[in-house]
Amino acid sequence: MNIKFAEKYGFCFGVKRAIQIAERNRNATTLGPIIHNTREIARLERDFDVSLSEDIENLADAQNVIIRTHGITKQDLQTLQERKKHIIDATCPFVTKPQKIVKKMSDEHYQIIIFGDKIHPEVKGVASYGENVCVITSVEELEKVKLEKKVALVSQTTKQPKQFEQIAAYLVSKVNECRVFNTICNATFDNQHAADMLSRDVDVMIVVGGKNSSNTKQLLAIVQKHCPHSYLVEDENDLQESWFEGKALCGITAGASTPDWIIKRVQEKIEQI
């Protein structure tokens, strides 16, 4: 089995930064998963005593609290400050950016439209900085929203640029004033473009990453358009030999929260098939 990697894949700047912060702060607790990769979270707990708390109410005994890459809500941050916790901020700068934009635009009385997934922690955090906020995932959803005269648009960092452009175009045609802020991360776009190009040339495509990771699921959706034999795996144990029967070239890409050690194991397992 021949293997070809996408030109861009794996850990992005924000994730690398967060992991380094966690490794420097032993015995700390992250509020929510620091990244969306259960294997890497387990490694941090095993090797660096970095524990995980899903709920702010379970942080009673934790003094050193790491804010995850996706950020937290404005309200949770205030709660940590009131409880005198030592806050270690690992929020990705590309996530902090839309938080600040939403606050500024909301203060200036703009209706806030966020292109993103309502239940995603990044979107929840960004939305918490605004007053009049609507979260949508498509133009079809936006058509049902009562729009005001002044609107500001931001995006979840891992969304697809083409969809964001469609939403922006719709808003511009419907309101008196529309401020558009492209908050999609460059690394996300680069990974998506590289995966798209590779998927056109291979017989089977493997996307490595957390199954609860938004950017990883986006990669899978993109490569499936050109390579129907595309699969998402969290590690080498998810691989199935039947996927590679009759195939000559396998493409590999990985989500922004996928560490190199997992990608290497997936590569080695495929080479053995």
Rank of each mutant, 00 (worst) to 15 (best):
I3M: 04
K4R: 14
K4W: 00
E7K: 14
E7F: 00
F11D: 03
V15I: 11
K16F: 00
I19Y: 00
I19M: 07
I21S: 06
E23W: 06
R24C: 12
T30F: 09
G32W: 04
P33W: 01
I34N: 01
N37A: 07
R39L: 15
I41A: 03
L44F: 09
L44W: 06
E45G: 06
E45P: 01
E54K: 10
E54G: 02
I56M: 11
I56Q: 11
L59P: 11
Q63K: 15
I66W: 03
I67Y: 03
R68M: 04
T69Q: 02
T69K: 00
H70Y: 04
I72K: 08
L80F: 13
I87C: 13
I88N: 03
A90H: 03
C92M: 06
E108R: 15
Q111T: 08
I112Q: 11
I112W: 12
I114P: 07
F115M: 13
G116M: 09
G116D: 09
K118R: 11
H120Q: 09
H120G: 03
P121D: 14
A127V: 12
V133C: 08
V135Q: 12
S138N: 09
V139F: 04
E141Y: 03
E141I: 01
K144W: 06
K144N: 12
K149N: 15
A152I: 09
L153C: 10
S155H: 10
T157C: 01
T157K: 01
T158K: 05
Q166G: 05
Q166R: 14
V172Y: 04
S173C: 02
V175Y: 08
R179C: 14
T183M: 08
T188H: 00
F189K: 12
F189N: 00
F189E: 00
N191I: 00
N191M: 02
H193M: 08
D196F: 14
M197D: 06
D201L: 13
V202N: 02
S214L: 01
K217V: 01
S230A: 15
S230W: 09
L232H: 11
E234V: 11
E234I: 07
E234G: 11
E234Y: 05
D235M: 05
G251F: 05
A254H: 04
S257C: 05
I262T: 07
I262M: 02
E271W: 13
